[in-house]
Design a protein around this nucleic acid. Structure first.
Lengths: 342, 342
DNA sequence: GTGAAAGCGCTAACAG
DNA sequence: CTGTTAGCGCTTTCAC
């Protein structure tokens, strides 16, 4: 049995309240008593029972995180950074995965609420365009990340995905590519925004949009490589195939690269390819992959800071933190002049 | 305010005890009462307050998981599978990362104990050879995974790493390689075991061991690519460089591949390389990487089953679950005859 | 079959 | 400054 407040109080001949106050740094207590208690507390390496504290205070010092899929390096990285900061503030992280299934997501939300998390951090797998009544009336403060909802006013931490799409596409334009395609997603806000950025870049540089070069698919988040592969095959089968492609994410780009090479084309000379996410292995791929970096680590830390501030004052004003993306050029879209070192 | 047992009891004019018993399926209660209560419970979508239940029962229906680094796909995958099974059994997963730092690990262990997890699942970053008094006397059931301790009798779930090393090395032997090197780790049991497997394969096939081909380094778990790169450079600088290398893990192998290609050698013709872990991107690397598959998903599920059984009967007999590894041949160690399709 | 009483370990509010 | 009282929501024990 672990040691309890009461035990220490008895030993020292004071009340449990006194010990409790010392424990929490309440200034009520006199210097001498405080010293005595503190000494005992440390000597015995006392740890408060969080369940009891939670029951008494209504707070659990726990944060819930729901990601669509921990296998995606982005979510793993985010979780790692979030957890790291929370640890330093003595908060625990309850992790759940929705497997990109809205049903499971709903179930996990309930489970985490039931456990009384102080804040819920969520990258929802619900369709961006569907109504979200459940999410808007949660009995716990919510922080959305990566994926947001148009009609919903909520705390958010994520990337400027329109900017990311525009950045990637402009880069391809600057390479002097004439037929720039896009393989994109349909259901999440990052997917839609990156596509919007693609379109915007084309429009702003006075290009007309050719719909044959715009390939949108569902479930690109989960099976990017397969889908990227087949979409690219489709593009290559066009009478005038594109000479550059901006892919929704890095896995999609990997699939596109495979299809391109298999068709016997040279990358980047005949086909420039860029992904998004800048995942850890981009340097080591068959063709090192250009990508858009989202600074996932900072995203996680920013979410942690927001989460902590909300945990302390749950009725704070709704905040939106949006990080600027950054272009990382590698072999897959290297300009002819540029020598890329691995 | 969420709804409480007491609310339902009052509404129905029964005692909280009755409701509580119905909730937990206690057979005490009569059919009619039970039906009435059940109906109300569902209608209101009642969820017990876990903090209160935890305080009353001493159980939290929560499992703690500590991994060295969530960025390593192995640990992310394991966490995903473990969490998935636990979810189906209404257990929550408290996730912590030790960042490969024994100090942080100790801190996290304390934090999770304090939160009253029912079982602690741990891939420890402590040196396999150091004594582990803290771990042996935990006030909570422990399941080690991936990394074990020689002198410690504890529940364990992991791979047969000696077998993995032997499998990889035998494969290189069967390729008819004459100078087979190994880049391995020093501190964890998988590292030592894989090295042991390498040595065993050489011995069993009557080869003598050349220590110049055995390169062991610390911290290979965290910075495999860098360290693999420099170790390989060292091997290539030998008067008679190896013609094959078994690398501790896939990241290390990636580094070794880079160094090999940079030196102008052909893979696999002049240098066969094999890693371990069979991570998700092995197919897409510059040279598709042969590897040893550990069936991480099954590892996670097995750990979940063990964890659940321990949660139900904490004093059960100590168990060790060891999965057989599987060889996956790709381009980096393809026999001349074999055509490997991507 | 059902419920009253007691308590899990802690904290909030107030009285001294 | 310190301690008493009451209670967080649930379960357990044991009468009825």
């Amino acid at each position: 049995m672990p040691i309890r407040l009461k035990d220490i109080a008895q030993e020292l001949g004071v009340s449990t309240v006194t010990v409790s106050k010392v424990l929490r740094g309440n200034p009520d207590i006199g210097v001498k008593t405080r010293a005595r208690v503190l000494e005992r507390l440390n000597a015995l390496n006392y740890r408060p029972n969080m369940a009891a504290r939670g029951l008494a205070t209504g707070k659990t010092f726990t944060v819930g995180l729901i990601v669509p899929d921990l296998l995606q390096p982005f979510f793993a990285h985010f979780a790692k950074e979030l957890g790291g900061v929370l640890r330093q503030h003595d908060r625990a992280l309850l992790l759940a995965s929705s497997e990109e299934d809205p049903k499971i997501e709903a179930q996990e939300i309930l489970a985490l609420i039931q456990r009384g998390v102080d804040v819920l951090v969520l990258a929802s797998c619900r369709d961006e365009l569907l109504p979200v009544p459940e999410l808007s009336a949660l009995p716990v403060p919510l922080v959305l990340f990566d994926r947001r909802f148009k009609r919903m006013k909520a705390n958010f931490v994520g990337s400027d995905d329109v900017g990311a799409g525009e950045l990637a596409t402009r880069h391809l334009i600057e390479l002097n590519r004439k037929r720039i395609a896009h393989i994109g997603g349909l259901q999440t806000s990052p997917a839609r925004d990156r596509t919007a950025g693609y379109l915007r870049a084309l429009e702003r540089t006075g290009r007309k949009i050719d719909e044959r070069y715009l390939v949108l698919r569902k479930r690109l988040e989960e099976r990017g490589d397969d889908i990227g592969f087949s979409c690219m095959q489709g593009l290559l089968a066009l009478r005038r195939p594109p000479d550059a492609v901006f892919c929704y994410n890095d896995m999609t780009a990997i699939g596109a690269i495979q299809a391109t090479l298999q068709a016997g084309l040279k990358i980047p000379r005949e086909m420039a390819i860029i992904g998004c996410g800048n995942f850890r292995y981009a340097d080591y791929l068959q063709v090192p992959l250009s990508s858009i970096d989202q600074d996932t680590a900072e995203l996680g830390r920013a979410a942690a800071r927001l989460t902590l501030s909300i945990a302390d004052s749950p009725q704070a004003r709704v905040q939106s933190i949006v990080l600027k993306p950054r272009l990382v050029i590698r072999q897959s879209s290297a300009p002819p002049s540029l020598k890329i070192s691995r």
